[in-house]
């Protein structure tokens, strides 16, 4: 489907999961589409705040995000500044808890019990249960209106496959949203991805968009680092 068909699914005020990792493994062309449309007041759920010129960070840069549930914003000073200025509400979640809350949201579970955060400020306002003498926090599910996923390949009926670390958060976010939109590098015929190759099956995926630009570009952070390393002697 076209970029326009995908972008038509995004609206102001939605809760959106972003599968990117500091703006890598990111549905970068569809994020460009969101910027062009000017989708605003986004409640974002992502493992990190991206970087100002990568992934979700590009939307934060344009101040289109109002709430962010995340584990880390250390690579995005703009997210930090907006948070301290009261322009961006940030809820920090420990990374393993982040993963399990989303998994719960996609797997029909009412929450999970984790030892992570017991004895820290993270336990404030949460139920604490003791199981076999050990304390756990009850952490509640996360679910979104839209999940924006990046994968390596899709087949024409919507099965998708990841490559190496590209699966990280993309794999489980695909289960935890009403509409699941995937940006892939390559579209293949049905049958080219065998049963063992498919990471998320077609019934879970709603829309597939195929990149029109470079399939596997270096992200801006890598481009800068590489230029610095290779131009260092000049």
């Amino acid at each position: 489907m076209s970029k326009e068909e995908a972008i038509a699914k995004f609206h102001d005020g939605q809760t959106i999961m972003f599968g990117d990792w500091h703006g890598e493994h990111s549905a970068e062309e569809l994020i460009t589409g969101m910027l062009e449309k000017g989708v605003k007041d986004i409640s974002a759920i992502a493992v990190s705040g991206g970087m100002p010129d990568q992934g979700l960070g590009r939307l934060i840069h344009e101040k289109l995000v109002k709430d962010l549930i995340t584990t880390h914003i250390g690579l995005n000073p703009e997210a930090r500044d907006q948070m301290f200025a009261g322009e961006l509400n940030v809820e920090f979640v420990p990374q393993g808890t982040f993963a399990e809350r989303i998994r719960c949201g996609g797997a029909g579970l009412g929450g999970c019990l984790t030892p992570t955060g017991v004895g820290t400020d993270i336990e404030k306002g949460k139920q604490k249960l003791t199981i076999d003498g050990k304390e756990y926090l009850l952490e509640l599910p996360l679910h979104a209106d839209v999940a924006l996923i990046k994968a390596w390949k899709a087949d024409t009926i919507g099965n998708i496959a990841f490559r190496y670390t590209g699966r990280a958060t993309n794999s489980y976010m695909a289960f935890a949203a009403d509409i699941v939109i995937v940006e892939v590098e390559e579209l293949v015929e049905v049958g080219e991805l065998g049963p063992d190759d498919i990471d998320v099956p077609a019934p879970i995926i709603d829309m597939v968009y195929v990149r029109t630009g470079e399939k596997k570009p270096f992200c801006p952070m890598w481009q800068r680092a590489r230029a610095k390393a290779e131009g260092g002697g000049k």
Binding site: S48, T70, T71, H72, I73, G74, R80, M83, F84, V90, F92, P94, Q95, G96, T97, T114, P115, T116, G117, V118, T120, I122
Partner: peptide, 17 residues
């Protein structure tokens, strides 16, 4: 608080497990 808040990333889970 008020000065430095990058987020805990995976550190709390490492401490727990």
């Amino acid at each position: 608080p008020g000065k430095l808040a990058p987020g805990m990333g995976g550190a709390m889970d490492l401490c727990a497990g």
